[in-house]
Design a protein around this nucleic acid. Structure first.
Lengths: 247, 247
DNA sequence: AGCCATTCAGGTACCATGTACGCAAATGAG
DNA sequence: CTCATTTGCGTACATGGTACCTGAATGGCT
C-alpha cells in the first residue's frame, strides 16, 4: 500500500536496507541530492531537472522517484544539505553579538557557495533538521536576556531578513558583473542597464538617483559592505533589547 | 526589423495606434495584465498561463506575444499594476514615522489583495514606474534628517524586509487556515502539521518549541501582530538614526 | 534448490507550458 | 484598387514533471 498523502519529505524516511527480499537500492537520497546541488551550483537551479540529475548519475529520470516523491521535495532536501554545511558551536557563548556575527558569516559563506539557496529558502516554507539547528542557534543566542519568546523571534527575524536580502543583493551583483564583465566603477557610467540610465536621466526620482549615483559604499568590498550593514542591524537590535526587556 | 535584445519591458513601448497602415490592435498590455492579475488573485500566479489568460480574453495564446515579449515581462507588468494601487500623498509630510506607517499599511493592503505580489517581487529585480514611485516616497521620508544616502537606503531596506516577510507570513498563515479550516487556537493542538508536531514532541529544539507553543501574540489579530512588529522596526530605526547622523 | 513476494531500474508515454513560425485577415496610404 | 504593414492565431516543437508498466534482482520460505 502506497500512502500518497502530500506530507513533508521529513516524514517520509528513505527505504532503509532492511534484510528483506527485493532488489537493493542502487542510489540514495543523499547521493541524488548532492548531484542536484552540484548541478545547481554550476548552472543554476533551473538546470537541475529530473532528467539531468538522473543523467549525471547514469540512470533514467524515473529512477529518482524511488527516492524522492516529487521534485519540490528535492528542493527541500537540497536546502537542508546546504544548511548542513553551516558550522556552528553546540551552544551560544553568552556573547550574543559575537554569536550572531559568527552565524551571519557562516550564512553568507553558504549562501554564496550555493547561489540558489536563499531564493529557494524564501520561496518555500521548509524546516529541515539542519535549518532547525541553525535557527535554534540564533534563537538561543538571545536566551537569558530577559526577552519574551515573541520578541526573540522578532529579532531573529530581523537578522534573517537582513542576511537574506544582503546575500541576495550580493549574488545579483555578482551575476551582473559576471555577465557584463565590468567592475563597479565603470558599471555606473558605462553600463548600469539602459533602463536604469533612462530613469536616472529623467530625473523623476531624485532620491533614487542619489542612491544610485552618490553611494559612498561603492568602493567597499562586498564583504565590507555586508559587514557594515550587519553592524547596523546589530546596533538596532542592541538598541531594541532594553526597551523589550520587561524591567 | 525586430530587435530582440532582452532589454527591460519598460524600454519597449506598446505599439501606439499611429495612423499608419496595418490592422489595429484588438487588445492592450493593460487589458492583458489586468486579466493576468485577476486570474492570479483568484487561483494563484501559476494558474496565469499564457493560454489561460488568452482564453479568458477569448483569443489564442500567441496573440499575447504581440503585446508582451515574454511571460516574465508580464510578471513585471503585473507587479507594477499592483503597485499602482498603492495610494500615497505626493510627498512626505515631515513626520517620517507617520509616513512610514502609512506606507506600511498600504503595502500590506496591496500585498494581501494580490497574494502573489511579494513572492514575485523578491524573485525578480524589477523597477517599474509605480514601484519607483513608492520606493521614492520611502526614501524621501528620511530626507532632511541629516542622513547619508547609503544609510537611508539601508533603513528603507530594513523596513521593506520587515514588510515583505510579515506579509509573506500572513499570507502563508491565511492559506494554511483556509486549507485546514481551523482557527488559530485549535490549530496548534489539532493540526500544526504532523511534521512540526513531531519536531516539537521530540524536544530537540527547545527554543523553537517555545516559539511555537508559548507565543503570546497568537491571540492578536493578524493586523495587530503586523502593527506590533512594525512598531518594533520603527523603534529600531528611531534608535539608529541618532548614531547614523554625523554630528 | 526452487518458488515467490518484494523492491528497484528505467523505458515509454502523457500532459502542461512557453514560444517560434507562418499564413490569412484587416487596414490605411498611394 | 493595390500593396506594404501589422494583427490574429493555428500549428508545431522543445522541455519538463511524472504515471504506469515491464523486467530484473534479491532473499526468505518450503
Amino acid at each position: 500500500m502506497d500512502d500518497d498523502e502530500p506530507t513533508s519529505i521529513w516524514m517520509r524516511p528513505e527505504r532503509q536496507e532492511r534484510s528483506g527480499p527485493g532488489r537493493r537500492p542502487g542510489y540514495s537520497r543523499e547521493q541524488i541530492t548532492r548531484t542536484a546541488v552540484q548541478i545547481a551550483d554550476a548552472e543554476g537551479v533551473e538546470a537541475a531537472t529530473m532528467r539531468r540529475i538522473a543523467g549525471e548519475l547514469g540512470t533514467g529520470a524515473m529512477s529518482l522517484y524511488r527516492y524522492v516523491p516529487r521534485r519540490d521535495d528535492l528542493f527541500d532536501l537540497m536546502i537542508d544539505q546546504a544548511m548542513a554545511e553551516v558550522e556552528l558551536p553546540d551552544g551560544p557563548s553568552g556573547d550574543w553579538r559575537g554569536d550572531l556575527i559568527l552565524l551571519a558569516g557562516e550564512t553568507r559563506t553558504i549562501g554564496l557557495r550555493h547561489p540558489w539557496l536563499i531564493a529557494l529558502l524564501t520561496s518555500r516554507p521548509t524546516l529541515g533538521p539542519h535549518l532547525l539547528r541553525v535557527h535554534e542557534f540564533a534563537l538561543d543566542a538571545f536566551d537569558g536576556l530577559g526577552l519574551d519568546i515573541d520578541d526573540i523571534t522578532g529579532l531573529v527575524g530581523m537578522l534573517n531578513d537582513y542576511l537574506h536580502s544582503a546575500i541576495r543583493r550580493e549574488i545579483g551583483w555578482l551575476e551582473e558583473t559576471r555577465r557584463t564583465g565590468l567592475d563597479s566603477e565603470r558599471w555606473k557610467r558605462d553600463y548600469m542597464g539602459p533602463y536604469v540610465r533612462q530613469v536616472v536621466e529623467s530625473g523623476a526620482f531624485p532620491m533614487f538617483n542619489r542612491s544610485v549615483l552618490d553611494s559612498r559604499t561603492a568602493h567597499l568590498t562586498p564583504e565590507e559592505r555586508f559587514r557594515h550593514g550587519l553592524d547596523r542591524i546589530l546596533d538596532a537590535i542592541a538598541a531594541l533589547i532594553p526597551s523589550l526587556r520587561p524591567r
